[in-house]
């Protein structure tokens, strides 16, 4: 390179070319660094979890034990808790988010759209630990006093439901954790839905209004079919967020390693278990390795969900 440069006839041009080459190289290196970063995260978690995978094999995924005394660890309970709270959170958050997005794109007067949109987005900016404190000090007592005893009484005697909504009405547990998660992922889903609803060409909606459709019919027959893929992508994005949420869940989940089958009972999630048990794990212990193995499992699940979300959101975003 320097030899070529020394034979160049115009010195100013030479420095400009090498400046370009250096800048481009730094940019490419930064891009590659991001790929390396993701690879390093996966590999480091896998290596950390390897002793645990070796000790328990595939049984790690199905075992419900978490016994630090006898050094037997299994991932089934936290995986169950993670999946149940996340799905339940989506069941609560998606209708709300749809309502917010519908309101913001079709119903709200123009001067209200920006402030309400900003307020909903601020909900996403509140730190996770604040949700945890709010959940523990405000929502859990509210649930314990007003919601859970009444729900248990009302559903008493109805098969399936009475078992599902059973458990000690302490206010903490899977259901409350899911409720907090729902509030946390609501702004992400609502913002995505609002953005994709806005990409519907106005002429489609105007045509539908023109043949006499009501606002709801336009939404159901024009906007939703047009944006279906992206809406599912937005929901998957919310799911990805819910799966790995840590601090908020840690406060209200109750942390017991048991699958009870009811929703008011306590449980744990992968993230909450890691956060709560990490401090009590000795360096190099099988317990620490099991926590890292759980982290690896969580990463794989989140990666798949987020990847699907990206793939669903991408094509429409480009066309818009």
């Amino acid at each position: 390179m320097s030899q070529v440069a020394s034979t160049a006839s115009v010195p100013a041009r030479r420095s400009a070319i090498s400046g370009d080459a250096i800048f481009a190289a730094v940019a490419v290196a930064a891009g590659v660094f991001v790929l390396v970063l993701l690879g390093a995260i996966i590999i480091s978690l896998f290596i950390g979890g390897l002793p645990s995978f070796r000790a328990f094999g595939l049984g790690f995924l199905t075992s419900t034990d978490w016994d630090p005394v006898q050094h037997i660890y299994g991932a089934a309970v936290p995986i169950y808790g993670t999946v149940v709270t996340s799905i339940l959170a989506l069941l609560m958050a998606v209708p709300l988010a749809f309502g917010v997005a519908f309101y913001l794109t079709e119903l709200a007067p123009a001067w209200l759209r920006r402030p309400i949109g900003t307020a909903v987005e601020l909900l996403a900016a509140v730190p996770s630990i604040i949700y945890g404190m709010w959940g523990f000090f405000v929502i859990a007592p509210f649930m314990a006093t007003y919601i859970e005893p009444n729900v248990i009484d009302t559903l008493d005697g109805i098969p399936v439901l009475q078992d599902l909504f059973a458990g000690p009405p302490f206010g903490t547990g899977l259901f409350t954790a899911a409720l907090i998660l729902a509030v946390m992922v609501l702004p992400f889903i609502a913002a995505t839905m609002r953005d994709v609803f806005m990409t519907v060409p106005p002429v489609y909606k105007e045509s539908a209004y023109g043949v006499g459709c009501t606002t709801w019919e336009v939404m159901r027959s024009i906007v939703v079919p047009y944006t279906r893929t992206s809406v599912v992508g937005g929901i998957m994005l919310g799911l990805g967020r819910a799966l790995g949420e840590t601090m908020a869940v840690t406060f209200v989940i109750g942390n017991t390693n048991r699958i009870t089958g009811n929703l008011f009972g306590s449980g744990n999630t992968i993230a909450s278990l890691v956060a709560l048990e990490f401090g009590e794990s000795e360096n190099g212990s099988l317990k620490l390795s099991s926590l890292l193995a759980l982290g690896f499992i969580l990463f794989v699940i989140s990666f798949i969900v987020l990847a699907i979300s990206r793939l669903l959101l991408r094509p429409r975003a480009v066309r818009a």
């Binding site: 480091s44 978690l45 994005l237 790995g244 890691v274 982290g295 969580l298 990847a307 990206r310």
Partner: peptide, 22 residues
């Protein structure tokens, strides 16, 4: 790179803590 960066954007922060720990 864009895909991986977007995934990292929503990746659970607790796992990034575990990664730096390791």
């Amino acid at each position: 790179v864009r895909f991986v960066s977007d995934v990292l954007l929503s990746a659970p922060s607790i796992l990034i803590g575990l990664f730096i720990y390791q």
